[in-house]
């Protein structure tokens, strides 16, 4: 793989960033979303510290609406040697009955993801929070630093970003403040797939095309993953050959029709795609600059 100079350079840079963050951290943690980017980040961090075990826990914010296959994959991963997993759910949200079907996607995300994340981070007192974010995902992220400063309320202040020169990251923090560290900032979606292939990184099978039960709503294919999903009158799940470019909560993550059952086919499809991967994320379409707003509020 190291003959691929682009992947090698991205891998070296990511490992440097991970080591730098852990060296400066009092309480590091890795946000683990179970998706392909988290899977790559996890394996990069293991490489960075081998033969020592991962020097930080994984944190999964479980909305209770993740695909079942994701949860199975997560639990298999957590069972590996040297991996410690923390799972947090916003119980107040569950008790208040906040679901993607009863509340707007923005409200649901606020309660079950953003608030839940803040709760988990406060509980752990984490100062260095590793995330799998990439700058090619969306416009406001293209302007975010690799070590992105958050105040004690977990807010991002885009106008007060620290200048980030060379590889000299300013990791100094006051009480309650934290850094979100994105070692894969300079990776693209295609890089992620090429790296998964080159390093044989295990991923959730939902990324591969298969026959799955879906309903079509407003032009988006939603997979019926369990019987909690209320069907509209006359609506019946039909089996279609689909896969997911991005994974989140099943009611909020649209599938794409695809015949890509192998990594090479997925890479080819990614390069030929005319839609960005976040197209399948229903929460991003809510309003203008929605990601930036969420981040200012403390979403990752």
């Amino acid at each position: 793989m190291r003959d691929d100079r682009v992947l090698a350079a991205l891998e070296d840079e990511a490992i440097e960033i991970i080591r730098e963050g852990v060296a400066a951290a009092s309480r590091p943690v890795m946000l683990y979303s179970i998706g392909k980017d988290s899977s790559v980040l996890l394996r990069l961090a293991q490489r960075a510290f081998w033969p020592a075990p991962l020097p930080m826990p994984l944190l999964h914010v479980d909305t209770t609406w993740k695909f079942r296959e994701m949860i199975q994959f997560r639990d298999r991963t957590a069972a590996e040697d040297g991996i410690k997993l923390i799972v947090h759910t916003n119980q107040e949200g569950v008790q208040a009955g906040v679901t993607p079907f009863t509340h707007s996607s923005s409200r649901y995300t606020e309660v079950m993801k953003t608030e839940a994340l803040r709760q988990a981070l406060d509980a752990g007192g984490y100062d260095m929070i590793f995330i799998g974010a990439r700058r090619d995902e969306e416009k406001s992220r293209a302007k975010e630093r690799i070590f992105s400063f958050r105040n004690a309320a977990h807010q991002w202040e885009p106008r007060a970003q620290r200048p980030e020169l060379w590889n000299l990251y300013n990791t100094r923090l006051g009480a309650g403040e934290s850094l979100r560290v994105a070692p894969m900032s300079n990776w693209t979606e295609a890089d992620i797939w090429r790296y998964i292939a080159a390093r044989e990184i295990p991923i959730v099978s939902l990324y591969h095309a298969a026959e799955r039960p879906v309903v079509e709503r407003e032009g988006q294919l939603i997979m019926v993953d369990d019987d909690r999903m209320p069907l509209n009158p006359g609506e019946a799940p039909e089996s279609r050959l689909v896969r997911f470019r991005t994974l989140g909560c099943y009611p909020l993550t649209a599938a794409v029709e695809s015949t890509a059952t192998t990594l090479d086919a997925i890479i080819a499809e990614t390069l030929a795609a005319d839609g960005s991967e976040r197209e399948g994320r229903l929460i991003d379409h809510d309003d203008e600059a929605s990601m930036e707003k969420k981040k200012r509020d403390g979403y990752f």
């Binding site: 793989m1 190291r2 691929d4 100079r5 682009v6 992947l7 090698a8 350079a9 090429r194 890479i267």
Partner: peptide
């Protein structure tokens, strides 16, 4: 070291 995949020609050079 992982299996060999076909890298695009562009990846013979480190990113500029």
């Amino acid at each position: 070291m992982g299996r060999e995949v076909t890298s695009p020609t562009s990846n013979r050079l480190a990113p500029l």
